[in-house]
């Protein structure tokens, strides 16, 4: 894919991921990409709490199933705010509901390049949607 994968410097990325090891790895990847990590929130209630306390992030990477709870209701709240979203999932695109089916996904397991491409795609899509 010939996606432009240059990310803005100092991008703030909100991470929701319930598995500590996977979250740790994602944090390392994001730091490597020059991003600031917001979170990670490892439970939905924690993520909701951060949202209510004026969450400040440019983009979110959301695990689809957070300790048995689907992320989508929460994801809709973020989407309503115009936040670009990337879904991380082991289910593939078929696991996304219709309203999110065009959003970028990170198919687990993912690499640094996958994360970079996913973030770039999300930002670009949201930019063109609001432009």
């Amino acid at each position: 894919m010939a996606l432009r994968t240059e990310l803005p410097a100092g991008l703030s990325v909100f991470v929701v991921e319930d598995e500590a090891l996977v979250a740790l790895n994602l944090e390392d990847i994001l730091i490597e990409l020059g991003c600031n990590v917001v979170g990670p929130a490892m439970r939905i209630d924690r993520a909701e709490g951060m949202f209510d306390e004026a969450l400040a992030a440019d983009v979110a990477i959301l695990d689809v199933n957070v300790a048995g709870t689907m992320i989508f209701p929460f994801a809709r709240k973020l989407a309503e705010r115009g936040m670009p979203l990337v879904f991380a999932t082991g289910y593939g695109r078929a696991g996304l509901p219709e309203d999110f089916s065009a959003r970028p996904i990170l198919q687990k397991p993912y690499t640094t390049q996958d994360v970079r491409a996913g973030l770039a795609q999300a930002i670009e899509a949201e930019g063109s949607a609001t432009a």
Binding site: V22, N25, G90, G95
Partner: peptide
């Protein structure tokens, strides 16, 4: 099968994480 596939993917994500953290 879907569930199995999903679990395998998650486990691989964990393994990948352990690998990169350990190497780091």
């Amino acid at each position: 099968l879907d569930e199995l596939n999903h679990r395998v993917k998650n486990t691989l994500a964990t393994v990948l994480s352990i690998a990169s953290q350990t190497l780091r």
